[in-house]
Amino acid sequence: MIPLYDAAMIPVYICGIVALYAVIRIVTEKKTLKKLVFLNVMNFAITGLIVLSIPDIMALFAGIAYFVGSTLEANAIASTYAGGKTNE
């Protein structure tokens, strides 16, 4: 018998639901740059999910790699959208 919820699992549930909420907000949002802000929320939540799923030092590395990678991606998308370097 699987219990309906488990007290130790509450952080996982929170992360999962926040991630899903963020995804829904991204899909319904119209402006590209504001999507990126919600994407950031999703990254936080997914990083949390990754680390909470396997408590191991490698999972920390995986989480950080994921977070930095998606931040880089968001940065690149935003910069390109805005037209690259402003000066020079």
Binding site: L33, L36, A78, S79, T80, Y81, A82, G83, K85
Partner: peptide, 12 residues
């Protein structure tokens, strides 16, 4: 800090 952040700020 970068042009992307600038653009997000002005959009908001």
């Amino acid at each position: 800090g970068v042009s992307g952040a600038n653009a997000i700020g002005t959009t908001i």
